[in-house]
Amino acid sequence: KRYRAVYDYSAADEDEVSFQDGDTIVNVQQIDDGWMYGTVERTGDTGMLPANYVEAI
């Protein structure tokens, strides 16, 4: 699945990823209600991200 960031996010922990509004997130997997795991296409960084900061595309 592919998602697009709708807000900027700065990683708060080493297992999270930072991204900017408009970034595409690929290979996304749902972890639980609030978190997903995926790769930021622009940077190649992979990690956890907050589900409410992205939307499906």
Rank of each mutant, 00 (worst) to 15 (best):
I25K: 01
A11K: 08
E14G: 11
V28T: 07
K1P: 10
M36A: 06
Y3K: 01
E41R: 05
D23F: 03
Q30T: 11
A11Q: 06
A12P: 05
R4A: 05
Y53T: 08
Y37M: 11
D45P: 01
I31V: 11
E14Q: 11
M36F: 13
S18P: 03
D21L: 15
A11R: 07
Y3N: 00
Y53M: 12
V40Q: 03
A56P: 14
S18E: 03
D32H: 12
S10H: 13
V17S: 02
A56L: 15
A5W: 02
E16I: 05
D32K: 14
D21M: 15
I57L: 11
D13T: 15
Y9I: 01
A51K: 09
A56E: 15
D21N: 15
T43P: 02
G34S: 14
I31P: 04
K1R: 12
A51P: 05
A5R: 00
T24Y: 15
Q29P: 00
A5T: 04
Y7D: 08
E55V: 15
I31L: 12
Y53W: 07
Y37A: 05
I57A: 07
W35F: 06
M36E: 01
G22T: 05
Q30H: 13
K1V: 13
N52F: 10
W35Q: 04
R4I: 09
A12M: 13
K1N: 11
Y37C: 11
E55C: 12
D45L: 13
A56M: 14
A56F: 12
E16L: 05
E41D: 07
T46S: 12
Y3D: 00
Y9K: 03
Q20Y: 13
A5E: 00
Y53R: 09
V28R: 03
D13E: 12
I57E: 09
E16T: 07
I25R: 00
T24R: 07
R42Q: 05
I25G: 01
Y37K: 09
T24W: 14
R4W: 06
D13R: 15
I57Q: 08
I31W: 09
R2P: 06
T46W: 08
F19C: 03
D33H: 11
I25S: 03
T43G: 03
S10M: 13
G34P: 03
R4F: 06
D45N: 10
D23K: 03
E55Q: 12
Q20K: 14
D33A: 12
Q20P: 00
Q29H: 14
D8R: 09
D8T: 13
N52K: 13
V6D: 02
I31G: 08
D13Q: 13
P50V: 04
V17P: 02
L49H: 02
I31S: 07
V28Y: 04
T24Q: 08
E16M: 08
D21T: 15
D21F: 15
D45G: 07
D32R: 15
G44Y: 04
S10Q: 13
R2V: 12
F19R: 00
M36N: 04
T46P: 03
Q30F: 15
Q29G: 07
E14N: 11
D15E: 11
A12E: 11
A11F: 03
D32N: 15
A11C: 06
M48T: 07
T46G: 04
Y9N: 02
I25N: 01
R42T: 05
E16R: 07
D45F: 09
D32V: 13
G47W: 02
G44M: 06
D33V: 10
W35L: 05
R2C: 11
V6E: 03
Q29D: 08
